[in-house]
Amino acid sequence: MMGAWGTGLYSDDTSCDVRDDYVTHLTQGCASEEAEQKILGGYGPLLAQPEIACCVYFALADTAWKYGRLSASLKAKALSLLQSGGDVFVWKRDAPTNVAARIKVLKALEARLNRIQPTELPMQLTPPKPQKVRTTAPIGSVFSLSLPSGNVALLILVGYKELAESIDPVFSALSWRAASVDAAPRHIAATDPTLPFNAFRKQCAHVAILPGDQRRNILFGLEQTSIRVEALLPYNPESIVWLAIGRIAREIDAFYHNHASSPTR
């Protein structure tokens, strides 16, 4: 249920992000259709997943309606999803006792979208803040990360992800851990295996660091090494999960605990 904590329309992280980002785009001077496209473009291929599509289109259509900016195409898409049952299938699968409550929420949304929307609300424009560049380390940099087990792992910087307020480094975790970085391979090839990270019942190829303290360097807890990457590792910007640095270390240890036959060098 996409991290849902209730049956309400905005009782999950994705819907809240869509609502807040849409309003931010309006306050930064975007026209309504441009704001819509920014939101939809940000989810890209993920909209092919019905669960995600419902969260995104329902929150976007509802927010646009409340601000008097709901376009005909967005309205038609949201109503089409609602008339086909919306995301009730998710609730039947994961929380059957809450199905009736979710159906009530979706019926209320459908009724609202079919009413005449309010007069377009004026927006107080706020210039966008400059993006915070988290680090200028070059792609291909290799960092060591201390693990709770006492071992160390290697994170390779494979790319950058541009967000609304920041540009974040994205890493792949090499399928390797050892008692010290001295045992690490001196060269890493593009074909060397990397570890997956779990997110919303799927696995992501890469991880980005969720900052716990905005005043601290995003790479705090990592040590840059002199290990050389022979060729750039694959990078898929649609396969990233954001985790706190401590969570990244715990997940790497957990992977090896659950795959005891995996090599530990």
Score class of each variant (00 low, 15 high):
Ala31Trp: 00
Ala31Arg: 08
Ala31Ile: 00
Ser32Tyr: 02
Glu33His: 08
Glu33Asn: 03
Glu33Pro: 00
Glu33Lys: 06
Glu33Ile: 07
Glu33Trp: 01
Glu33Leu: 05
Ala35Gly: 09
Ala35Gln: 02
Ala35Asn: 02
Glu36Val: 03
Glu36Arg: 01
Glu36His: 11
Gln37Ala: 01
Gln37Leu: 04
Lys38Phe: 03
Lys38Val: 00
Ile39Glu: 06
Ile39Ala: 07
Ile39His: 05
Ile39Gly: 05
Leu40His: 03
Gly41Asp: 10
Gly42Ala: 05
Gly42Phe: 05
Tyr43Leu: 01
Gly44Thr: 02
Gly44Cys: 01
Gly44Leu: 03
Gly44Pro: 04
Pro45Ser: 09
Pro45Trp: 03
Leu46Ser: 08
Leu46Thr: 01
Leu47His: 02
Leu47Lys: 06
Leu47Met: 05
Ala48Met: 04
Ala48Thr: 04
Gln49Leu: 09
Gln49Ala: 02
Gln49Ser: 06
Pro50Thr: 04
Pro50Cys: 05
Glu51Tyr: 02
Glu51Met: 08
Ile52Trp: 08
Ile52Glu: 12
Ile52Ala: 09
Ile52Met: 13
Ile52Leu: 15
Ile52Asp: 10
Ala53Trp: 02
Ala53Phe: 02
Cys54Arg: 02
Cys55Ser: 15
Cys55Gly: 05
Tyr57His: 15
Tyr57Asn: 13
Tyr57Asp: 11
Tyr57Phe: 15
Phe58Arg: 02
Ala59Gly: 03
Leu60Ile: 08
Leu60Thr: 06
Ala61Phe: 04
Ala61Trp: 04
Asp62His: 06
Thr63His: 03
Ala64Phe: 00
Ala64Pro: 03
Trp65Phe: 15
Trp65Met: 05
Trp65Cys: 01
Lys66Leu: 07
Lys66His: 14
Lys66Ser: 10
Gly68Ser: 10
Gly68Thr: 06
Arg69Leu: 07
Leu70Asn: 07
Leu70Ile: 09
Ser71Ile: 04
Ser71Asp: 14
Ser71Leu: 07
Ser71Ala: 13
Ser71Lys: 11
Ala72Leu: 14
Ala72Asn: 14
Leu74Ile: 11
Lys75Asp: 03
Lys75Ser: 10
Ala76Glu: 15
Leu79Pro: 05
Leu79Gln: 13
Ser80Arg: 11
Ser80Asp: 15
Leu81Thr: 09
Leu81Asn: 11
Leu82Phe: 11
Leu82Tyr: 08
Gln83Trp: 06
Ser84Lys: 14
Ser84Ile: 00
Ser84His: 13
Ser84Tyr: 05
Ser84Pro: 06
Ser84Ala: 15
Gly85Lys: 12
Gly86Thr: 10
Gly86Met: 07
Gly86Pro: 11
Asp87Gln: 12
Val88Gln: 15
Phe89His: 12
Phe89Ile: 07
Phe89Gly: 12
Val90His: 07
Val90Leu: 11
Trp91Glu: 08
Trp91Ile: 01
Trp91Met: 10
Trp91Ser: 07
Lys92Trp: 08
Arg93Leu: 15
Arg93Cys: 08
Arg93Gly: 05
Asp94Trp: 07
Asp94Pro: 00
Asp94Ile: 01
Asp94Gln: 12
Asp94Thr: 09
Pro96Gly: 03
Pro96Gln: 13
Pro96Tyr: 03
Pro96Cys: 06
Thr97Lys: 13
Thr97Trp: 08
Asn98Phe: 07
Asn98Glu: 13
Asn98Lys: 12
Asn98Arg: 13
Val99Ser: 07
Val99Met: 10
Val99Thr: 11
Ala100Ile: 10
Ala100Val: 12
Ala100Glu: 15
Ala100Trp: 06
Ala100Ser: 14
